[in-house]
Design a protein around this nucleic acid. Sequence first.
DNA 1: AAGAGTTTGTGAACGCGAGAACAAACTGAG
DNA 2: CTCAGTTTGTTCTCGCGTTCACAAACTCTT
Lengths: 220, 220
Amino acid sequence: MSPTRIPEATVARLPVYLRALNALLEGDIRTCSSEELATAAGVNSAKLRKDLSHLGSYGTRGVGYDVEYLRYQISREIGLTQDWPVVIVGIGNLGHALANYSGFSSRGFRTVALLDADTSRHGELVAGLQIRPFTELAAIVREHGVAIGVIATPAAAAQSVCDSMVGAGIRSILNFAPSVLSVPEEVDVRMVDLSSELQILAYHEQRKSNGGPDLEGVPA
Amino acid sequence: MSPTRIPEATVARLPVYLRALNALLEGDIRTCSSEELATAAGVNSAKLRKDLSHLGSYGTRGVGYDVEYLRYQISREIGLTQDWPVVIVGIGNLGHALANYSGFSSRGFRTVALLDADTSRHGELVAGLQIRPFTELAAIVREHGVAIGVIATPAAAAQSVCDSMVGAGIRSILNFAPSVLSVPEEVDVRMVDLSSELQILAYHEQRKSNGGPDLEGVPA
DNA sequence: AAGAGTTTGTGAACGCGAGAACAAACTGAG
DNA sequence: CTCAGTTTGTTCTCGCGTTCACAAACTCTT
């Protein structure tokens, strides 16, 4: 099934739908319309329906969607029905938070190792795992079949860590370091930039209060 | 001058350019071409030029851009030349990490208070600030003129915290809780969803290895 | 069984952003 | 001064994503 590629914008929203479906299930809601689900996910209902139509025809006209069934279909499409071993490198404040984040340890993702270059922290217990030397990366990747790596180091170390990950065979990287990574074609990198988000907010906030560096007094 | 609105996609990239310019300055590079800056920022040079053209005409044909001058112009456009007091609510692992994150405390942003509902943590020192009761939110917002709030609480508390923020006069919210927030029209919310990013990676990773979800049932 | 009321899935129109290509503008040498 | 070389700013085209609007399909009542 689903031989056609799913649009990137749709893929980015699937996790949101999944979360909304989980919330509905916790409220013992078994069925929902596209309108309800869209509201819960914070999107337009037409967009939701079109997104779901890319996965297949899992709803019933005149009725709506079976919450559990739809949740399973989306999970399967994303790949959460498989097991994804994950390695986190850089156990500072952020790495510590990520290791304890439930969204990381649940839902098909399994943190198999925490690595740090700082020898003084090796052996320290974080989220039930011992911090191990960064040099063990390749062995761990091989042993557990790790495909996804998380970088939570300072910016200066990020590219070097990234290179090691790629060398060890990791093909998908989630980068929290404020640094642009260069990788081979076949490797996927997603960047989460905490301070960028704040700056984007600041831009809009400035527009709201000032009307921007220049107000709307546009000459005709 | 910038009477025209800057496209949202461009705004989202300005922080990246800013970071790249800072990196160039640290290497004592005073001038750069759009090609060099684009490479450092990880984007296409045509896209970079078009983005910058929305701010104004700050380059010189045949020469390139003055790094420091361009950095100032982008900073001003984003609004980083002003002071932005910020409040962080929810000092768990993630809030702790955010409080210590240099990208938050620098560049025009100033964390003025850390709030948490858990009374047993009040007074605790994090990143040089004492954790204070959540009930003090309104007073703090009024006193410091806080316009930006950061939510790093569990999902269950997020909407309630959000409502309090809006009530206190905050108009821009950065939400790290995995929860869709509903706010009045004039309030801006940006969501940073850590586990979504991981799920998006998993989707692509699955495509790379399997050529798609479960091929079971596919005729040979 | 038929019709009224819902709700999905999709075709079509529209707007925005990406990228290529080029004209305008600057530098420097002869 | 003129011409060759360089690099920006902008125009144009194309493709993707969003949204509207509606037909198809289902349920329920009479």
